[in-house]
Simulated assay, not measured.
Amino acid sequence: MKFELYKALNTNETEVFNCIKNFETSGKLFADGKRNKIKLFTLDDSTINIKSFKIPNLLNQVIYKYFRNSKAKRSFEYATILKEKNIGTPQPIAFLENYNLIGLTSSYYVSEHLVVELTFKELVEVPDYPENEIILRQFTQFCFNLHEKGIEFLDHSPGNTLIKKVENSKYNFFLVDLNRMKFHSEMNFETRMKNLCRLTPKKEMIAIMSEEYANLYSKEYQEVFDKMWQYTSEFQYKFFRKKRLKSKLKF
């Protein structure tokens, strides 16, 4: 077993460990997906979020023990880096890995639980959401800052950005589902545009994002829009082709 607590927090290590230990029998279910399960626990009068990752297949059990960090450990380490770089993400608290003779059996990532107004997904699905364009432009600024700091968030999809209103017309953004990231000394134009391709299929949203990004990046709007829309279109084509293929195979 490996257990690590975020060093800068004055958190009771035993209490955090016990929450993980009792994951299956206590806590409030927050999300139950095909791959992972999330439960909420009370710790020191606050709510924490514990994510239990799906038990990997036999090959990955070995890989995660000897050759590559587990998703739980990567989530913890990447969240720590984001905090150091002043990028919004729920406060990391701890991670735990369990092993047997073969490899990794189970793993958990613990963070603060944020209560927010929406995710980027709602911004896509509800076009008349209040202050839609204001949020979209501030989100683009957030993404630009991410790129300027060399952070390539590989799971940059609509459900993985939490959005919290902090004052009138002012919003903060928090990345979740952090186990896939790359860190660069500098990100080129192509990498930046490709990193935004999974966020929305809506051309009108891409237009606003392109205008805001172009102003920040000192590039012509049309060049930014053409490249962002190109990568978005390519992603959407591959996504729906894969979906159709799965449907045919099931049939």
Rank of each mutant, 00 (worst) to 15 (best):
F174T: 04
C143Y: 13
V115K: 14
Y99V: 04
T105Q: 04
L162T: 05
V115Y: 12
F41R: 08
N10H: 08
K85T: 02
D44L: 03
L114C: 11
P130D: 11
E152C: 14
P127R: 12
F144R: 04
T200A: 09
F67S: 08
F144H: 13
E131P: 11
P92Y: 13
M187Y: 07
S233N: 03
L118Y: 04
S247P: 05
F142P: 06
R68V: 15
L43Q: 03
P201D: 01
K39S: 04
L199Y: 06
K121A: 14
P56T: 02
K73M: 15
I81C: 01
M205A: 11
M209C: 15
T47E: 14
V126G: 01
R74L: 14
K182M: 03
K85V: 00
T42D: 01
L199M: 08
G88C: 01
F3M: 08
F173E: 02
S169Y: 13
E24F: 08
A8W: 00
T42P: 01
I20T: 09
L118E: 06
Q236I: 08
M205I: 05
N195F: 12
I134Q: 11
S185N: 11
K28W: 03
F67N: 10
N100E: 00
D177C: 09
G159Y: 07
F53L: 04
E167Q: 12
G27F: 03
F144W: 05
N195A: 13
K34V: 03
G27R: 12
N60S: 12
L101Y: 02
F17D: 10
Q236L: 10
E186R: 13
I81F: 10
N195Q: 13
L123S: 07
H113F: 13
I93Y: 12
F189V: 04
N12C: 07
E133Q: 14
L40Y: 05
F76N: 00
I151L: 10
Y108G: 02
